[in-house]
Write a protein that binds this DNA or RNA. Structure first.
Lengths: 344, 344
DNA sequence: GTGAAAGCGCTAACAA
DNA sequence: TTGTTAGCGCTTTCAC
């Protein structure tokens, strides 16, 4: 009656199949998982018996000798971040297509938790899929020695990986903003442990310089909606007319804060996000942002870890212009500072 | 150099530890995983040696005799749905806290894919966490015979589970709408295979009747943003002044369509969603919706499957009033039908 | 083409 | 308290 009860039926093993089919276990095994090394006649017979008995191979037992489980660990910095669901989706789909499965691990933006997961999962999985891991290269290396691994948005010596084309995205962002007349932009930083954060900052600064626009940076900030108020205030304080956030979560949080604070977007300041997460297209105003190749990246990670090299390790990331960016106000003063004061 | 290369170091086994410590393997095993049955002196010694050698138990090998892996399969109908990330989050957190891990499976709203996952994962995991499974009870039963399972939002004979308090949420929804003067509401249905959809419809209809408001239903609709236009039109066609959607995805899609179509919300019609997903609070207008106990449900599922009964199998779900609902227009005619015509 | 037997790494009787 | 030994279910040499 009660399926949670304890009286679960014993599973039918390959021994049962072999006995019922009147062959040796090795023959049954071959018939099932290595046909071609067995006569068609016995293959068919064993298959029929296995089917009839409802035989399902015990993957754990298969894994012991072979050492391979068909399981891959996907480690994300924060499952809660909608950006990462694209990664999860892509990885799950690609893995499932190859008959593999994904074990999900949430690093919670914490290098120690990350390491604990890698350690725990190590003896279970055939490989690691690391999404912008937060741990230091030195901490990560020993944990990854035992398995193939592939990394997204974090070049790690000796490990294959893919990254988003952050430079291209930054170029488009600055070009767009400069074209709208913005003379100063501020980058609202994400977590310090994020490689993408450093890249974004570096490339934004470089392109800003190229266009002669003043570059500021503020932060770090946790990559969550709740960072909005602090990030917005820090950004406004620089006097910049364009706020470029580490990701959409921060950007949307900024939008919400600005609305409450009576700062018009894009009338007073423009706001740009990153990742183009669910919600970016219908927040208020719809967010100009930079896409993230999340789903392709998820797929590429499983390809990489299973031995297929991607065509190009840098995945496209482009600017999507919506309504949170517009022409710069002719002039802006830093928050609380008299109009016209020097803006550094 | 290249960690994907083939020259991976052989893992240190418990035999290595035992030999190095000068004890029998069973002693080493006990010292590590069943202390108390071994002298403190040897326990410490073995532990020290294991540490020094960098011993990590092979979980697959541990699992073979014990039959338990510490892995639980979480099956969701669609990883892409932000509602489900709450479930994933809760389950992952609770599992991790108990030293367990979650294998994620995406049913893609398809009973066959769902079944395939259950079959594949069966020999790997200690139990199944099923989030509103789409398969029929008859299809599911044989797949769940071998393992404990717990279910969210779908009473399944013999299986423990938790459900959202859909009745309470519907009561609050209808009361809210009736209080605003709405005399007719339409429920924009979700997938036919969803138990929650049936419950929502049934309870909404019952409470509507109690308040003397006319009840319509339209659908089914796929639970995605893209269903918005069709759902909105079907809803408007009934002449109802309040559209209650199966979930927030459909509701937000409806909002977007209505805005494009020039129908004012809540001026012309009110819209209510369900789940309170990320984005519901900042779409335009912010969505009145019913919360889903997603994260608690995720936690409850792992508790249930590991043998802990929850205090109450029905988890609270409440109405959150935001700006997509407002006073009913004194009168409304079905789309395209002359004002004042009978509204069925 | 098929069978016998060893072994993957670990735990759990059973002995001592 | 500790050691010996037999599996867990499967694959895979190695013979025949």
């Amino acid at each position: 009656m009660n399926h949670t009860g304890d009286a679960r039926p014993r599973a039918v093993t390959i021994y049962d199949v072999a006995r019922a089919a009147g062959v040796a276990t090795s023959t049954a095994s071959r018939a099932l998982s290595n046909p071609g090394r067995v006569s068609e006649r016995t293959r068919a017979h064993v298959a029929e018996v296995a089917e009839r008995l409802g035989y399902v191979p015990n993957r754990m037992a298969q894994a012991l000798p072979s050492g391979r489980t068909g399981l891959f660990a996907l480690l994300v910095p924060d499952v809660t971040n909608p950006h990462h669901v694209g990664l999860i989706r892509g990885a799950e789909a690609q893995a499932a297509a190859a008959g593999h499965s994904i074990v999900l691990a949430d690093g919670q933006e914490d290098a120690a938790i990350e390491a604990a997961h890698l350690r725990r999962l190590g003896s279970f999985v055939d490989g690691f899929l690391l999404v912008s891991p937060r741990g230091s290269a030195d901490d990560l290396a020993p944990l990854l020695r035992r398995h193939p691994a592939a990394v997204f948005n974090r070049p790690l010596a000796g490990l294959p990986g893919v990254v988003a084309d952050i430079d291209a995205a930054s170029a488009q962002t600055v070009e767009h903003l400069a074209g709208l007349g913005h003379r100063a932009l501020v980058y609202l930083r994400g977590p310090e442990t994020s490689w993408a954060d450093g890249e974004r900052r570096r490339t934004l600064a470089a392109h800003a310089e190229r266009h002669g626009v003043t570059f500021h940076a503020a932060g770090p900030h946790a990559p969550v909606l709740g960072s909005g108020p602090a990030a917005a205030e820090a950004g406004l304080a620089t006097g910049a007319t364009a706020l470029v956030a580490f990701n959409d979560l921060i950007a949307i949080g900024v939008l919400q804060h600005l609305e409450r604070a009576g700062v018009a977007v894009p009338g007073d300041v423009s706001v740009v996000g990153a990742d183009d997460v669910f919600g970016a297209s219908f927040c208020h105003p719809p967010l100009t942002t930079v896409t993230s190749p999340a789903e392709p990246a998820g797929r590429a990670l499983v390809d990489l870890v299973t031995g297929t090299a991607p065509d190009d390790p840098v995945l496209p990331s482009v600017l999507v212009v919506r309504e949170s960016t517009g022409p710069a106000r002719s002039s802006r003063s830093p928050r609380g500072v008299p109009f016209g004061a020097a803006n550094r």
